[in-house]
């Protein structure tokens, strides 16, 4: 069954959605959209590093995305004007990555697949990496769920309850780097944060509790990936943008359903 590239692509997409659902809701609740951008764009720099040094692409992007996420978390923690700093970091990382890749000789690089994803070329190894990483992220968030939730509501309340909100921030930061590394092949570096934000935003009008919002975000993500995959095949369009467009359509649909329900 895994011999079929379509089956592998669908499984990869569902695997990624398992992780982007629970993480995406926190990205929305904590207003970390730019944070996701910076980390996602840094993955391109990681690709360049991996190509130059012979490391696996996944590991290279994980390392650089992780370094970027930790840097951003440290800067925000120190009260820097987060918006501007994140903007600078996000676009610098992307540009530096593109420049660095152009310097890597001897490897035929399909830059487009890193920028926009290449879900139809997912290998068995990729599948293992994606599902392993996704289950790790799900386990991490499930384990810390209540604490993550409280420190997202108010960090000082978490401190008063004897928790350490900085630790929860670190956990989300690590999870973000992992998700970026494993979504690179699915939607590409440019649109990774879209896969985190849009399904979570689409889940909001349908959810009455944090938990149902995670479930809806995951379903929306999986639905978007499968729809995008199908469109990519049918009309021969790049998979990443097709997936993000599909999630935008789901978002509109969810808003309308939410309105109807309230009416």
């Amino acid at each position: 069954m895994l011999d079929d590239f379509l089956v592998r692509a669908a499984l990869a997409g569902i695997g990624v959605s398992l992780a982007t659902g629970p993480l995406g809701v926190f990205v929305v609740w904590r207003r970390m959209a730019y944070f996701g951008d910076a980390t996602g764009h840094a993955a391109i720099l990681g690709v360049a590093l991996a190509l130059a040094s012979g490391l696996p692409i996944g590991l290279g992007s994980l390392l650089v995305a992780g370094a970027m996420a930790l840097t951003v978390a440290a800067l925000t923690g120190r009260g820097w004007a987060a918006d501007t700093v994140l903007g600078v970091l996000a676009h610098s990382a992307l540009a530096a990555g593109l420049v660095a890749i152009s310097f890597v000789h001897g490897v035929r690089v399909d830059l487009q697949s890193f920028l926009f994803g290449d879900i139809l070329a997912v290998s068995r190894m990729d599948l293992l990496f994606i599902w392993g990483g996704a289950l790790l992220v799900v386990a991490l968030i499930a384990w810390r769920w209540n604490r993550l939730l409280l420190s997202s509501v108010n960090a000082d309340l978490a401190t008063a309850a004897g928790e350490r909100p900085a630790r929860e921030t670190l956990i989300l930061t690590v999870a973000l780097a992992v998700v970026v590394a494993l979504s690179l092949k699915i939607v590409g570096a440019l649109l990774i944060s879209a896969l985190l934000i849009i399904p979570a935003a689409a889940a909001r009008p349908l959810a009455r509790s944090p938990e149902t919002m995670v479930v809806w975000a995951t379903l929306m993500g999986a639905g978007a990936v499968l729809t995008g995959l199908w469109s990519s095949l049918t009309w021969d369009v790049p998979a990443g943008p097709a997936i993000v467009s599909a999630s935008a359509a789901l978002f509109l649909l969810a808003i309308m359903v939410g309105r109807l329900r309230r009416a």
């Binding site: 929305v28 609740w29 904590r30 207003r31 209540n146 604490r147 939730l149 409280l150 997202s152 509501v153 978490a158 309850a161 928790e163 979570a200 935003a201 909001r204 959810a207 009455r208 509790s209 944090p210 149902t212 919002m213």
Partner: peptide
């Protein structure tokens, strides 16, 4: 954040 659906009981049950 308005995107966080939380009712009073759930809030009081954290952590």
């Amino acid at each position: 954040d308005a995107t966080l659906p939380l009712n009073v009981a759930r809030f009081l049950a954290l952590p």
